[in-house]
């Protein structure tokens, strides 16, 4: 239950920790654009190396990042296998009915794998090195122009910061209920798929109940402290844009453009 890295933050003093969250987020988006649009096997190699270097720069062990990929491994494997078997073209290595393993299929499978893993790794870099509140503040700043279109950006950012903040709490709560039900003899996660799903009821139901209660209490707490929708809020911590933020962002954007034009 505690394996999920989402919403967790590891304090540190690395370059990546230090840059302005807005620069970090924009750089992340830029790199993800690069990852998603690159279609050549050689250019992906550059991206793998780049991502590896970024992970090393954060000072957090690479193993930690790999553990972040693990919960999603089955989705990745499933998609990759589909790509390999159902893409035709180029030299055909193996065929059985509609299933073929072709040169294009293998390439496509590799590309999908690369995109999945690199996007997860880079998002993990951002979430692990940025305080959740900073992240949602940065997102708010970057999305602010959309307010002109009358989109509720303030509420959205606020919701996001609360959700991010509550993820670890929710996981702890789930663990607590899981422990309690295991002590009452529940075999959670054993047997057939149907049995496994049924055995989760004793965990999921109390979890829902307590989450709704918590949301209710939180809403009251916010209201008594003067929260109202649609008003301007000031901010306790402000970001300060520095030279190294400009440099980082420019380098990343140049890198992305370079890859796209290659």
């Amino acid at each position: 239950m505690n394996k999920l890295l989402l919403g967790r933050y590891i304090p540190g003093t690395s370059w990546i920790h230090d840059i302005d969250p807005r620069a970090k987020l924009a750089s992340g988006v830029s790199l993800i654009v690069a990852i998603l649009s690159v279609g050549h096997v050689y250019t992906t190699a550059v991206l793998w190396i780049m991502t590896y270097l970024i992970m090393r720069l954060t000072g957090i062990r690479v193993r930690t990042y790999i553990r972040g990929v693990k919960p999603l491994i089955w989705i990745i494997v499933f998609t990759v296998v589909l790509q390999i078997f159902f893409t035709a073209g180029g030299t055909i290595y193996w065929a059985w009915g509609p299933l073929t393993v072709s040169q294009f299929g293998l390439q496509q499978g590799y590309l999908v794998f690369t995109r999945f893993v690199l996007v997860i790794l880079l998002s993990t870099v951002i979430t692990l090195t940025t305080r959740p509140t900073d992240l949602s503040d940065a997102l708010y700043d970057l999305l602010r122009p959309l307010r002109l279109l009358r989109l509720p950006i303030d509420e959205f950012a606020f919701m996001l910061s609360i959700s991010l903040r509550l993820i670890p709490d929710l996981l702890d709560e789930a663990q607590r209920i899981l422990d309690a039900q295991r002590l009452r003899g529940a075999d959670i996660g054993e047997g057939s798929l149907l049995r496994q799903m049924r055995s989760l009821i004793p965990v999921v139901l109390p979890l829902f109940q307590s989450s709704l209660n918590r949301a209710d209490r939180l809403a009251y707490a916010l209201e008594v402290r003067g929260f109202r929708q649609g008003i301007r809020r000031s901010r306790f911590r402000r970001f300060r844009w520095q030279w190294k933020d400009t440099i980082t962002l420019s380098l990343v954007v140049l890198f992305t453009l370079g890859l796209l034009l290659w």
């Binding site: 607590r176 209920i177 309690a180 039900q181 002590l183 004793p202």
Partner: peptide, 14 residues
């Protein structure tokens, strides 16, 4: 062993 957790009422589900 029977362990009654803190705030055990939060684990009811049926």
């Amino acid at each position: 062993m029977g362990l009654v957790f803190q705030y055990p009422e939060t684990q009811l589900f049926a």
